[in-house]
Nucleic acid binder design. Structure first.
Length: 105
DNA sequence: GCAATGACTGGTA
DNA sequence: TTACCAGCCATTG
């Protein structure tokens, strides 16, 4: 239906949140990957959206390109990733991007 | 319309 | 391995 855009999050934010919701358990995506998936190329903009509306989506499945979780929620995020069965590195402080990176399929 | 902000990224040391 | 720098872009005041 031709509904108007929501009052809260902007169109850009909604697209980012939509992609994050598509990430299956046990898989993760980097901020830059989310942007690329949308045809955009600004990881910072994605990070800003997560800071503002991340609470509405499985934000714990979005990590930095290095596989390390976001600073403010690193502990909480790492714990949720482990519960999802996400392959972590031996250090246990980061995600094994080589295996956990979602290919979008 | 401008300047500041932020959960980023890649390169260099 | 960690630490710092400059570039990047959407959102906000």
């Amino acid at each position: 239906m031709g509904k108007l855009p929501p009052a809260g999050p902007s169109l850009y934010a909604e697209r980012v949140l939509a992609v994050v919701e598509l990430i299956p358990a046990g898989k993760v995506l980097a901020y830059g990957d989310v942007a690329e998936y949308l045809g955009e190329s600004s990881a910072r903009a994605v990070g800003r959206v997560m800071f503002a509306y991340g609470a509405a989506v499985p934000w714990h499945r979005v990590v930095m390109a290095s596989g390390r979780p976001a600073p403010p929620k690193a502990v909480e995020q790492l714990r949720r990733l482990a519960l999802d069965g996400t392959p972590l590195r031996r250090s246990g402080a980061a995600v094994d991007m080589a295996r956990a990176r979602w290919d979008g399929r």
